[in-house]
Design a protein around this nucleic acid. Sequence first.
DNA 1: CGGCTCGTCGACAACGTTGTCATCATCTCG
DNA 2: CGAGATGATGACAACGTTGTCGACGAGCCG
Lengths: 320, 320
Amino acid sequence: MKDVAAAAEVALKTVSRVVNEEPGVNAATAARVVAAIERLGYRRNESARVLRKGRTASIGLVIEDVADPFYSGISRAVEDVALRNGSLVLSGSTGKEPERERGLVLTFCSRRVDGLIIVPTGSDHEYLLPELDAGIAAVFVDRPGGLDVDTVLSDNSGGARTGVTHLIRHGHRRIAYVGDSASIFTATERLYGYRHALRDAGLPYDESLVATGPAEQAGTALTGMLSFDDPPTAVFTGNSRITVAVLRTGHRLPMVAFDDFELADLLVPGVTVVAQDPVRLGSTAAELLFRRLAGELGTPERIELPTRLIPRGSGELRPS
Amino acid sequence: MKDVAAAAEVALKTVSRVVNEEPGVNAATAARVVAAIERLGYRRNESARVLRKGRTASIGLVIEDVADPFYSGISRAVEDVALRNGSLVLSGSTGKEPERERGLVLTFCSRRVDGLIIVPTGSDHEYLLPELDAGIAAVFVDRPGGLDVDTVLSDNSGGARTGVTHLIRHGHRRIAYVGDSASIFTATERLYGYRHALRDAGLPYDESLVATGPAEQAGTALTGMLSFDDPPTAVFTGNSRITVAVLRTGHRLPMVAFDDFELADLLVPGVTVVAQDPVRLGSTAAELLFRRLAGELGTPERIELPTRLIPRGSGELRPS
DNA sequence: CGGCTCGTCGACAACGTTGTCATCATCTCG
DNA sequence: CGAGATGATGACAACGTTGTCGACGAGCCG
């Protein structure tokens, strides 16, 4: 900028004014400055600007894994909203490691992002408090982070309840639940929805039909249940990875899956799912964040987005 | 930092030294400073540091769409490599719009990223030249960007050739090619591989069996071909979106698809694919970038990663 | 004991912006 | 014609770091 000023024979400040399109610059002078900028290939140094202004026009996005379609959907939505708001997105995957989440968040903070969108992995987010005090806005997505902060969730229990009820309506009385381990918020909620549906229908809750744990064990768990004297006639799966694991076992059990996935309609039978809307999850969170950044006050919101049952065949099979 | 210095009753520079773990600070003094840092909840302002040092320890990643599994694979790999190198990733999706790509790249540059990893969307990347001169490193991934810059690609033509040859070996003589429009580098390469395979086998190249264009038209194009007097007995699809479009038509034509996709093995029959390795694509590009950032000189490299044929059934069917 | 090195520390400038205020010429109006 | 308003421009400080260099005392050696 100094060079540009020299080249255009004006003061530094005048160049600054031109670059920022501030009023009060003679058209002729401005033209001279623009020419000099062009000639020297000058581009404003955003770091210095940030230092001066305090706002970085960037937000941090912390998710579990960009490579997972659910999170990449969120990712894309956040990106789009950010772009519309003139912000950039710094993103990082935690891979379910709370330590890595913490590292990412703190790094983002020291880079002075204006706000954070976090899919919380650990349960303890105390370390965020000083940052929040320092004025960084934060929104939790998909799971609550244990702090009194804006949060956007899917209606996990309601969705699971709908899905299980769907199976019950089709005549199933013994329905297996295969889901993530109980330490994960969404898994607990979905299991709750499952129980709720059983209760609604007056069916007993049988613990031996419930398997929780990582996706790798889902297949064997279900296979085990099928060897019972009184095996389940249908299964409700708690997330996509588990759904796939169950599908790979080759049992063609009637099934409703939580979370939609590509090609669910091309399998035979098509897989009936309770679909979440990752894009809407992401955009809602981002909109909320930018409203906060724009100065909107008020108590933290907790938004629950509806899920949608998509019948495709597997959930409409009757017990055999 | 000023406050910390005051609280610890030392000079600004001493705090800086402690924060950066520079040698030459008395242990007792350091302890006092650390205590003050703790007490005040101080965290270094990275923007100021960047301004002073010139390096931002961040790279820009420009891809077509994070929500596409192929690109999110790249994304994740880049992220991991960056993290290992102490860098952050600014990312953005272009959605195939050259204008948006340009905007993203220039924004990243004005934020002084150290380097860029770009999946080029437009063909004209002249606008990058001033940035490259300014010392920003760049690597193109998946497609060349028309500039003499490090580039990491899949072996598109070789992969397609292998895939088509596979069908030929299984007795097919009339093989349809349904791929992306010719303006896209990878599509041209794959079509070239297709022709190459036909030539190798002494089969004629029949233009009426070749459909290029967006995925939305892929289904109808293939359906059209199947009404010929002498219809194709197998199809080679040029990318995942097109593969899915073709699958949705419901024709159970013998088929080899370029690019692997989740659940390809669960369809009936399993879909034989020529798999690319997005993760390796991303990590190779990132490694290359960081080597350049570390000062490695030499002429730009052009790396072509091998593809892998994965037989799953659909490609092993004989003509009916 | 004088000169030397070494360890520790601080003063100061600089990075590239932008906000504040001052300057100066020109114009307007009574 | 003089006072004040207006428009254009510039000088300077500040944002929070870090690099450079110099100061100061303690310990060492000859």
